[in-house]
């Protein structure tokens, strides 16, 4: 029974993480509300492109997730990420960090 509970917990964990890929150190994945078109994605690329710490971003319109790839040794605070997204006209659903 204990094994079954552990397996169910592990399974639930896998399912809840399904929308987000495994993220290596130096990447941040952000779930975004309102991300429905290429123009929206381009807006986020432009906004994060101005951040010194950001190498590039990937946009997944299917899952409404933006993956921010940071430059080596660089950090980007959640507050800065939220501000950039809100300033671009969108809302943050969730921020997940790798590493």
């Amino acid at each position: 029974m204990k094994k079954l509970i552990v397996m169910l917990i592990l399974l639930a964990g896998l399912i809840s993480n399904n929308a987000f890929a495994d993220h290596p150190e130096g990447t941040v994945e952000v779930g975004i509300y309102g991300l429905v078109c290429d123009f929206c994605a381009q807006a986020l690329e432009k906004v994060f492109g101005k951040e010194v710490a950001v190498d590039n971003i990937d946009v997944n319109l299917d899952d409404k997730i933006v993956t921010i790839h940071l430059k080596h040794g660089q950090q980007l605070d959640d507050a800065v990420i939220r501000k950039n997204i809100v300033d671009a006209g969108y809302n943050v659903e969730e921020i997940r960090r790798g590493g």
């Binding site: 509300y33 309102g34 429905v36 078109c37 929206c40 409404k64 006209g89 809302n91 659903e93």
Partner: peptide, 12 residues
Amino acid sequence: NLVKRWNKKDSQ
């Protein structure tokens, strides 16, 4: 002016 935007998971 964009007076108001409603951002949802699958729509805007």
